[in-house]
Design a binder for these strands. Structure first.
Lengths: 158, 158
DNA sequence: GTGTCTGCAAAGTCTTTGCACCATA
DNA sequence: TATGGTGCAAAGACTTTGCAGACAC
């Protein structure tokens, strides 16, 4: 990330400018961390990842910018039921992310990203969205679908 | 709730005994509060409702028992994105609850319980559940589906 | 009677906020 | 150079925990 101007930065830069925000170093680093993982990181996870190379970037800055990115629609925020929020990049320069939903183990917290029924889900969700939008006069911005249960490893333990 | 032994109590009592738990006064009162509302109460809401008539029942007891009820499957716990958990009765003596999902306004926090597409949703969710369950070797216990956006009143304000 | 449950208070966690200084555009 | 952004520390909000006493079965 540090040296030169990475390709992606230009794209991000444009996004930020469009919102009237600035693309600062902490923001670049944060996006870089999110871009390079498939995991569902908490604010603290991200802070630690950043802290290795940029020890002066604080946790508060991470929280502030995650909030900003969520509002900009660049990042999704999830609740997997363990009391801390998890974050995931929603889109990138080249649509690098695949749309997926989550299956969470309530015992160990393991999260499976599945794409198995995505098309059917999206089709139904889209239809529902239209219907609800009209009936309840909402501008719907997001949907959320998730399954939870107990994974095989956790069942074995019992 | 207080006088005599309400009908429902017998049902709850059986449920608790089945799990090896006791049906104590705080638990009866808590269930009573949840039974008599259509709202999505936070732990504190419930505590205040209880506190009016039973000022000696503490907030910690409310939290402990909500957790217990969630584990027993009698209560659902939701996250509407405002930093506090909301609770809703999942089943009652006579199936008094209708299955529904939520549409949340991210500005004012208003929650609409909708049942409009429930049958389709349940059908698809059921199918997905079977598929995921098999593929990822999970015992799936719950699904979660929710929409969020901005309601008409909040849009007017802008 | 006995093992579970409660009340109170204290502690824990995650997240947000205040403010002086800094840096992007 | 003029805002918006950052760093640090402190505060805030919600939830959990410890422990002695109380209570359901």
């Amino acid at each position: 990330m540090p040296r030169g101007v990475p390709m992606q930065s230009l794209w991000w830069h444009g996004k930020f400018r469009g919102y009237g925000y600035r693309l600062t170093m902490p923001r670049q680093v944060l996006l870089d961390v999110l871009s390079k993982t498939e995991k569902h990181l908490s604010a603290e996870d991200i802070y630690f990842a950043i802290n290795k190379h940029y020890p002066n970037i604080g946790l508060a800055t991470v929280y502030r910018n995650l909030e900003l990115l969520v509002q900009m629609g660049l990042v999704f925020k999830f609740d997997f039921g363990d009391g801390r929020a998890r974050y995931e990049l929603s889109e990138g320069p080249k649509g690098i992310r695949h749309h997926h939903h989550h299956l969470v183990c309530t015992e160990c917290g393991r999260v499976v990203d599945y794409t198995d029924y995505i098309d059917e889900e999206i089709e139904l969700l889209g239809r529902i969205e239209k219907g609800l939008s009209k009936k309840y006069d909402f501008v719907i911005k997001e949907h959320f679908i998730q399954f939870s249960g107990v994974c095989s490893k956790c069942r074995e333990k019992k």
